[in-house]
């Protein structure tokens, strides 16, 4: 190995008789470097960067998706601000954010903490918790549509056992329950993933800190608050950030299960945008909605970076 590096170095030394060969070698490497990058950059520009830039332009136009786009300035944005459907959808995104900042993060922290305290069967629990996350969203959704079916689900099963309260309740079909019910299903597929993120972080927390806390007479809860939470702060902040952004942009489970219904009860901005573009052919308006939501999530990332620069411990 050393011999080879020696050979390379002498080949590249200026003034030696191999200098031009060395330059040719470097040129060849530079050329191959960019050639090797080309496929990645090409598909990325074609699918993501180019259309993202186009979204900025189309958001200022009236465009059906076919034919020419007509420049309308800020019209789409002022329309959004006076669109009742948008504000209703955005309020559902905010409710979604609150649910996902509490339930899966709470389950994730608790689950990861308990897993870190045991050794036997830990791997089995990890695998079991993770399974819903790797299964297709459409199948996960169908399973819960079956379990929460008003006539052939949990309600009628409990009724057979003499507990009639849930019989005939249509979780996804009721205005009041649709959004929390979809959030429940989405959380069911998500929380196990959060457990594993936290568990990875927990395993790097110094075990001696727990021992020291125990010596000082700290109970389980005090250990959790004073050792666990500070030890995984970076991951916790990351998960909170990812949750907020994910909640602003949420789409899949809602679209699969309720399509935003009934009567807009589970509509979020993501599903609204999809309908504007592909059902109402308001592509310009949809572009403005998409850009607005992307801008909002970018803004939140910026705020976090800014606070961290300012020395906040977030």
């Amino acid at each position: 190995m050393e011999v080879n590096e020696q050979t390379l170095r002498s080949a590249a030394r200026p003034g030696s008789k191999d200098a031009s060969a060395g330059r040719a070698l470097r040129r060849r490497r530079l050329l191959s470097a960019w050639l090797f990058m080309l496929p990645l950059l090409a598909v990325n520009v074609l699918v993501i960067l180019g259309p993202s830039v186009a979204t900025v332009y189309y958001s200022f136009t009236e465009w059906s998706g076919i034919g020419p786009a007509e420049w309308v300035g800020l019209q789409n944005y002022t329309d959004i601000l006076s669109d009742g459907d948008f504000w209703s959808a955005l309020s559902h995104n905010l409710l979604w954010t609150v649910i996902f900042l509490t339930v899966p993060i709470g389950m994730g922290l608790g689950g990861a903490f308990m897993l870190s305290q045991i050794t036997r069967f830990q791997m089995i629990f990890r695998v079991l918790f993770f399974i819903p996350y790797v299964m297709a969203s459409v199948v996960n959704a169908a399973i819960w549509q079956n379990i929460l079916d008003p006539d052939r689900g949990i309600g009628s099963t409990l009724a057979l056992l003499g507990i009639p309260w849930l019989e005939g309740v249509s979780f996804f079909g009721s205005q009041a329950l649709a959004l929390p019910a979809v959030a429940f299903v989405d959380n069911w597929h998500w929380w196990g993933f959060v457990v594993l993120l936290f568990l990875t972080a927990l395993q790097s927390v110094d075990k001696e800190l727990y021992e020291a806390a125990k010596m000082d007479g700290a109970g389980r809860w005090q250990q959790f608050v004073n050792v666990t939470i500070p030890g995984i702060r970076a991951t916790l902040v990351f998960v909170v950030l990812m949750t907020i952004i994910g909640s602003l942009l949420v789409f899949d489970y809602i679209y699969i299960i309720t399509q935003g219904g009934p009567a807009g009860a589970s509509e979020v901005v993501g599903t609204l945008m999809y309908k504007e573009a592909f059902a109402r052919f308001e592509a310009g308006y949809a572009a403005a909605l998409g850009l607005g939501m992307s801008f909002l999530s970018g803004l939140i990332v910026m705020i976090f970076i800014y606070l961290r620069r300012k020395g906040w411990e977030v």
Partner: peptide
Amino acid sequence: LDLPGTDVVLLYLFVASALPFQLFLVPL
């Protein structure tokens, strides 16, 4: 291969892998 500007490409990849589909779906 000592790609010049590797840091810039890395940053671009981080951003690109985090861009929401809402941003590029309609024109795409």
